[in-house]
Write a protein that binds this DNA or RNA. Structure first.
Length: 389
DNA sequence: CCAGACGTTGTT
DNA sequence: GTCTGG
DNA sequence: CCAGACGTTGTT
DNA sequence: GTCTGG
């Protein structure tokens, strides 16, 4: 599933990904390496004219029928099972006109180990944002209108299924993204379910990260930096080999300084060669091994061409019985951070949870932060400060 | 009719 | 809002 | 999602 | 285990 994510995307990158020119309530967006339900994300929805618009919303659907004085629970509906989304009363009503996209850098999953939970960071090796399918709603609280969203989930893809049995619905191509977003064409309503397929592209990669990020108060680039876990292979390898293998963590640079402007392009670092001949343990770090790649390629051949799967030429148009077994595959079969270049490694700055209270003029003003901490009802807190500020 | 719920995940 | 349960 | 708490009594 | 808080 998906209960924690990194979104440090800069404004340029968000708007470019969204193919939008406007961003409503941009001030409320604070880039975060460790964002949980309740936090603000850039969301792409359809504007009045059908054009894509970016709109800052909170993660964790707070339905419109929530009473004005009620305390919002961002953790109750932060995910929506794609298999049942069309049946559930809370989600069904949103499908016709409240579909949205959520671009993020990546997300986190935890694996239970003997000594605790080990977090992994999952992202695209291409540096592109991962785009999730979601639904949004508005809630009229006592203090004002709040926008929130939920992320659709589906079965995990083969590459990730050792990690978890659920994953967010990733819309990999612009075509799939547009298909999900456009609300003018009623004909697509009946085919939306075709987008609910596990994304299994080779460019979906992962690596273990520090357990310090388990608590979302821990912020900063350290959250998604690759954690080196000594494996038998590296432990016994000669020094030289270790040094070579140590290069890989690139994707944890800030996308931009303040979320206003995209800094260093995030589209580079595409590995030149695709040679996953080195068998990797799934748990260590991410590109999957040779066998897995073979498997993926095989599926590309077998999978019917779906809108959310990049049109792979020779795809046999078999009559996919249920369609349930289909999996998306990558457009760009580039991958491997393995031996690829690793852009400078930012100095891991030691920080405590300070940046969550940073600037963000937003509309937060009302009661001082510490004031109504225990209040059962929202009292007179500002709409933008339920927490996280 | 009214009242009450409306969700996901993970669990050996 | 909309569905289920009584 | 993870982290952290989880209680009672009596008190004008 | 289960609930609350972030």
């Amino acid at each position: 599933m998906c209960g924690r994510a990194r979104c440090t995307l800069g404004a340029q990158e968000v708007l470019r990904t969204a193919r939008a020119s406007d961003w409503i309530d941009q001030e409320s967006y604070q880039p975060s390496y460790n964002a949980a339900p309740g936090a603000c994300f850039p969301v792409v929805r359809s504007g009045d004219g059908g054009e894509p618009v970016v709109h800052t919303m909170r993660w964790g659907l707070v339905p419109s029928f929530t009473k004005p004085g009620e305390k919002p629970n961002f953790f109750r509906m932060f995910n929506a099972r794609s298999e049942t989304v069309a049946e559930k009363a809370s989600f069904r009503r949103l499908i016709p006109a409240r579909r949205c996209l959520i671009p993020v850098d990546g997300f986190y999953e935890w694996v239970k180990e003997k000594d605790g939970k080990q977090p992994y960071y999952v992202h695209l090796s291409t540096g592109e944002p991962l785009v999730f399918a979601g639904l949004w709603d508005t809630w009229q609280s006592a203090e004002g209108t709040m926008h929130s969203f939920t992320i659709l989930t589906c079965d995990s893809c083969k590459r990730l299924d050792w990690l978890h049995d659920r994953m967010p619905v990733v819309l990999r191509t612009p075509e799939a993204q547009q298909r999900w977003l456009r609300t003018d064409d009623k004909d697509t309503l009946g085919t939306l379910h075709k987008l609910y397929v596990p994304y299994n592209g080779e460019d979906l990669v992962w690596h273990p990260v520090t357990r310090q990020m388990n608590t979302f108060k821990f912020q900063g680039p350290e959250c998604c930096k690759e954690l080196k876990i000594p494996s038998a292979a590296t432990f016994f390898a000669p020094r030289s080999a270790k040094a070579a293998g140590a290069a890989s963590t690139a994707s944890c640079e800030p996308r931009s300084g303040d979320g206003k402007e995209a800094g260093v392009g995030g589209m580079q670092q595409v590995a030149a060669d695709v040679e996953p001949e080195v068998k990797q343990e799934p748990g260590i770090s991410g590109q999957g091994h040779a066998a897995a790649s073979q498997h993926v390629k095989q599926e590309v051949q077998d999978a019917p061409a779906a809108i959310n799967t990049d049109e792979k030429p020779a795809g046999r148009q078999t009559a996919a019985p249920t369609g349930a077994a289909e999996e998306q595959t990558a457009a760009v079969a580039v991958s491997s951070t393995g031996a690829a270049a690793a852009p400078s490694q930012e100095t891991p700055q030691k920080r405590k949870a300070t940046d969550s209270s940073a600037a963000s003029p937003a509309k937060s003003s009302g009661a001082g932060k510490g004031s109504a901490k225990k209040a059962k009802l929202p009292g007179q807190r500002d709409i933008t400060s339920f927490f996280h500020k």
